[in-house]
Write a protein that binds this DNA or RNA. Structure first.
Length: 670
RNA sequence: GCCGGGUUAGCUCAGCUGGUAGAGCAACCGCCUUGUAAGCGGUAGGUCGUCGGUUCGAGUCCGACACCCGGCACCA
């Protein structure tokens, strides 16, 4: 007598089914509507194919398009699968490798046929067309369990060396599965963990779009072959796809490079690629931010210093940068260049100096001056330190990734027992600053020891534990902060906490960081005299909140779409006249605002007010102060906040100045 | 650094299969004294990223290089 399986449903009811039954059977038993709508199943919490039989008693919930997260994940994974099949249909000889779902779609990495070369964007429409054909065939996606040798042999026989390699290296004990498009012997198949939708026809043929091509290294390793990756975005419906494409267009309008040019904030040019030319308006933002942060650091017990740009290679050898970081450094010979025409500038026997890529060694040198007592600790040395790093050219990105940047750097020299409290206090300071800048979402990661590193395992154990403990103590090791640990991603001298902000199109950028370092104090021989009268090594906490002023401003631009809060706006108010009779009064208004510490300008051009409103609105000036004959006579100002539907109010000059002065107060002075 | 794409007036972009460059906006000049997102008219503006090649002739075809864009790798 066969034992029936008990299947518990979300409504609390339990159904009994024959062994070998599947979630699809249960769905069908409940009703034809559900059977049709079901996309996959959660069996004991695990997402599975509808057609995969139960292994025993189970809790089951059926996944439909109303379970958007699961449904999207499934659909995107399936789009990737369909993409791979389409590509192999069109371009025989292309090898498949790997193709997951992403946040808004999917990609698949291919090894192109040798006679063809990588894919280009011109290939995409053709591939999209073939994908629609695959979807229209509406074949079932059939799961089969294969053993390892069969997989390896099968892929080898097909000339699929990447898949064969992958199959050979998958960990033991895992069920190895393939999915076939259709039941035919020769149906297309890919090795894949699944799960998948029941048939390709469950995909909407008009809810995806192939977006771009790129190179990608096999297994993410630069030493391996360069594959050809095709990216797509995929959704459950055409409507969702269209909404996403609109979002992308909107995001493109927030691009800091575009807004930076339109608002005249900065520019970049070939002669100094990777370094920013800050224009007056852009530098006003910089100065407001720097002044704000300086006040916050002063209040938090930091002392500001300034250290040399160019230092001898001997220092960098001692610090370890020469060994582990030299590829990223700009090295300069310590000699006068030859004045002879055509002669090389460098003789080759001059001493070498390097532009600093980091501020830390210089801060240790300051710490080392004079004897330090345990009573002096912690010592917090801060610097708006301009660093140069010779970054890989392909990595440069607007002002978010540059070769010259200014860190809001500081190094806290402290005792072992002060680490956790100092890091926790830093986490609080950073949180406060981010919120005051309008970033209420950021992610915290802990980057653990890399392969290439200095220092003993014991030192790393302690440093990692301390950082982890501090984030826990600050209450931020939570999902809300995207808390996770990243093995192998620490700096060569220390593990680091990373604080990430998000740009307009959802890319994340590391801004803040704290690193607990015992290596550099050792290498540069920093010490303090302890209570016991003996010399001890301080710990050095490297930390930054903005990370780089350039990057932070770039992200601020994107987050605000150029509409800065009043205290940061490059021009806070423009006084625009309607008639030239108001010009003198307008100058007086600008003068009063300037005296009150505001950044105000006059627009006295002989132009219609419509034009002035339009131009200053496009320039994202927070307040337009309109002056006509009436205002000039009554000594009032018509205040027009930025925004097409903004209402306007008329107030006396004194009241206006007071109001803007109050509103423009930086958040820490309120 | 690697893969793909791009570089034409200040900006956004046309320029078919090679026959010495075009629009809109901006700029400049003139008129308009103007009431809340483009007033009207006129003028000027480009060695087509750089270097080399093919050709009677190259913005257009080929090559190298530079920079930019999207990814990969690297990273604040």
């Amino acid at each position: 007598m066969t034992q029936l399986l008990k299947i518990a449903l979300p409504d609390g009811s339990v159904r009994e089914v024959e062994p070998g039954a599947t979630p699809a059977d249960v769905a069908a038993a409940i009703g034809p509507g559900l059977a049709k709508a079901a996309l996959a199943a959660r069996v004991n919490g695990e997402l599975r194919d509808l057609a995969r039989p139960f292994d025993g008693d189970a809790e089951l919930s059926l996944v439909t398009s109303r379970d958007e997260r699961d449904a999207l994940e499934l659909a995107r994974h399936d789009y990737a699968h369909v993409l791979a099949e389409a590509v192999q249909n069109l371009f025989p000889g292309t090898q498949i490798t790997f193709g997951p779902a992403t946040d808004d779609g999917f990609y698949y990495d291919f090894a192109p046929a040798p006679d063809r070369g990588p894919f280009t964007e011109e290939d995409l429409p053709l591939i999209e067309h073939e994908m629609r054909r695959v979807i229209a065939r509406d074949e079932p996606l059939v799961r089969e369990v294969w053993d390892r040798q069969r997989l390896i042999d099968w892929f080898r026989a097909k000339g699929e060396s990447f898949k064969a390699e992958w199959a050979a290296e998958l960990p033991d004990g895992e069920e190895l599965t393939v999915y076939r498009s259709g039941r035919a012997e020769d149906a297309w198949l890919d090795m894949c963990r699944g799960p998948h939708l029941p048939t390709t026809g469950k995909l909407a043929p008009d809810a995806f779009k192939l977006t771009r091509v790129s190179g990608a290294y096999w297994r993410g390793d630069q030493k391996n072959a360069m594959l050809s990756r095709i990216y797509g975005t995929g959704w459950l419906s055409r409507k969702q796809l269209d909404a996403h494409l609109v979002r992308l267009e909107e995001a493109a309008k927030r691009d800091h490079r575009r807004i930076g040019r339109e608002m005249g904030l900065f520019h970049l040019q070939e002669e100094a690629h990777g370094s920013v030319f800050w224009h007056p308006k852009g530098y006003r933002i910089w100065r407001a931010l720097e002044a704000y942060l300086r006040r916050r650091l002063d209040a938090a017990g930091y002392e500001e210093v300034k250290t040399p740009q160019l230092m001898d290679a001997r220092l960098w050898e001692q610090s370890g940068h020469w060994g582990k970081y030299r590829e990223n450094m700009f090295v300069v010979p310590d000699e006068a260049p030859s004045s002879e025409e055509g002669k090389p500038v460098i003789t080759g026997d001059a001493d070498l100096m390097a532009l600093k890529p980091m501020n830390c060694p210089a801060h240790v040198l300051i710490f080392r001056q004079g004897i330090k007592s345990y009573r002096d600790l912690p010592i917090r040395l801060a610097e708006f330190g301009t660093c140069h790093r010779n970054e890989p050219h392909g990595a440069l990105h607007g002002i978010l990734r540059v070769r010259q940047f200014t860190q809001d750097d500081a190094h806290i020299f402290c005792r072992d027992d002060q680490i956790v409290e100092e890091v926790r206090a830093f986490c609080d300071l950073l949180d406060r600053v981010y919120r005051e800048l309008g970033f209420d979402r950021y992610a915290i990661k802990l980057a653990l020891r890399p392969e290439q590193r200095f220092g003993s395992d014991e030192m790393w154990d302690k440093a990692e534990d301390d950082l982890r403990a501090a984030v826990v103590a600050a209450g931020r090791a939570t999902e809300e902060f995207g808390w996770e640990e990243l093995p192998g991603e620490g700096a060569f001298y220390a593990p680091k906490l990373e604080f990430h902000l998000i740009d307009a199109i959802g890319r994340t950028w590391q801004c803040g960081t704290v690193q607990a370092d015992t290596v550099l104090p050792e290498r540069l021989d920093a010490s303090y005299v302890g209570e016991d009268g003996q010399r001890h090594r301080p710990v050095m906490l490297h930390r930054a909140i903005f990370g780089s002023v350039e990057r932070l401003i770039g992200i601020l631009i994107e987050n605000h779409a150029g509409r800065f809060p009043l205290w940061l706006a490059p021009t806070q108010a423009v006084v625009a006249t309607i008639v030239s009779d108001a010009n003198d009064y307008a100058r007086e208004v600008v003068e009063a605002l300037t005296r009150a510490g505001l950044r105000a300008e006059a627009d006295l051009r002989n132009e219609k007010i419509n034009l002035k409103v339009r131009e200053h609105s496009l320039a994202k000036v927070p307040y337009l102060l309109v002056l006509g004959k009436r205002e000039a006579e009554e000594r009032t100002v018509a205040l027009r906040p930025l925004g097409a539907d903004a209402r306007q109010e008329v107030l006396p000059l004194d009241a206006l100045v007071e109001r803007l002065r109050t509103e423009a107060t930086p958040p820490d002075l309120r």
